[in-house]
Design a binder for these strands. Structure first.
Lengths: 225, 225
DNA sequence: AAGAATTTCTTACGTGGTAAGAAAAGCACA
DNA sequence: TGTGCTTTTCTTACCACGTAAGAAATTCTT
């Protein structure tokens, strides 16, 4: 571990900070490698030693927003009605997205779900399960609440793009970091005797959420009249 | 109305059809002007006589998906419980999005909401209002159900990008085509004595939907145990 | 036949991502 | 002290994409 070489003027942190700032000011469209580099008084290619290309930069942005969400969420007490826990969590996330309006757009555009996002779902799921909900209901809750946190309606647990090739270690790390999600996936896989794949399953989720909303709205309607 | 000039081998329809096909096969990323032109055995610049650039092409794609939704929706009866009407409508829309997975992504990426999308909201709102719901509740329903149809959580009625400059005619056309939406906007504007703008308002919508979901989930939890 | 109209094609420019490798700037060992 | 190794930054260049400008092609009108 030597300190040899030209002393760095950049760092991953500085690059990402500049990118966030630029996005806050000009949105995601104007965010080119050259623009971010300019903001740092540096050439575009210099960024490549700190993020792996444009995709890496965007991944870094996701990481940063989710870190902010984590921060805004860190102090939430985890006892009391699970609804309060989840409610505060969702509102905190929303606050961050309001500060960074490009957040939801960016999140939906990314194809894979980063660990930082999983951390949220883990917290929501944990609150529910500890309140006595089944993993099945928890699963449906994650789908239903997904767009409440991030503004997206994405297939959550579709094995996106070679998720099959996870090493044993990675899986066990995942299980440690996200025990409830892991248990939920296991339970759901076990329940569904094979006919899961495809959108039938996801259609059921869709209908579940839809009916939740429709019934809630109908209750409000009759209550108001 | 003459037929003079070189006979066209292309048409807006053919261009959009090729684009849809390409998107179905390769997603939105690979969809370049050159690729769509290739598929038609034509040069990229030839497309410009039928769509106004890339943006126009994407607008056309939105138009096409929404047309499919319309088609899948046309036969829905509009009497009975409003929930059934809305339910079928949402499921029909979902079916189309499943056929064209790029649909939601495309819809969220567009900055303005095309009339074809308004038509849906009009139908949903109409069903609710005719069932006795207030415009206020209808408004909240549109927000809550928004992501159920299109996968998006967008500010619905934010005057996006120079919506102030609509001609008198355009407004009256809009009022004719979408009477319920027009009435709703009027009612909501009237109610809110000035302090509407900004995200406070939108935060209220957010909380409303959130509580709808949380309460619904809690009801399911206690029912299951 | 000449001209007008319309679509398509050719060429070329600007921008954005990034590959390849040269230049800069510090450390280690002689 | 200098020579070479290492790490970061910069230079140059290529390719893909959107599209502006205008030439070429093709048909109808007169």
């Amino acid at each position: 571990m030597t300190t040899r070489g030209r002393p760095p003027t950049l760092s991953r942190e500085r690059v990402l900070a500049a990118a966030v700032e630029h996005a806050d000011r000009s949105g995601l469209d104007g965010m080119t490698m050259r623009a971010v580099a300019d903001e740092l008084g540096v050439e575009a290619m210099s960024l490549y030693h700190h993020v792996s290309g444009k995709a890496g930069l965007l991944d870094g942005l996701v990481e940063r927003v989710m870190a902010e969400v984590d921060e805004a969420t860190a102090l939430i007490e985890t006892d009391g009605d699970w609804r309060d826990v989840v409610r505060r969590r969702c509102l905190a996330a929303r606050g961050v997205m309001v500060r960074h309006p490009w957040g939801p757009t960016l999140l939906v555009s990314r194809t894979s779900i980063p660990p930082s996002v999983f951390a949220h779902f883990e917290a929501v799921l944990g609150a529910m399960v500890e309140a006595g909900a089944s993993y099945h209901l928890g699963h449906r809750a994650l789908h239903a609440l997904g767009s409440m946190v991030l503004g997206f309606t994405q297939e959550l647990f579709a094995p996106a793009d070679g998720e099959g090739d996870l090493s044993e270690e990675e899986l066990s790390l995942m299980a440690q970091a996200f025990p409830h999600i892991t248990a939920m996936v296991a339970a759901e896989l076990h329940d569904s005797d094979g006919d899961v794949l495809g959108w039938c399953d996801s259609r059921a989720e869709f209908e579940f959420t839809l009916d939740l909303l429709l019934d809630g709205l109908e209750a409000q309607r009759t209550a108001a009249s």
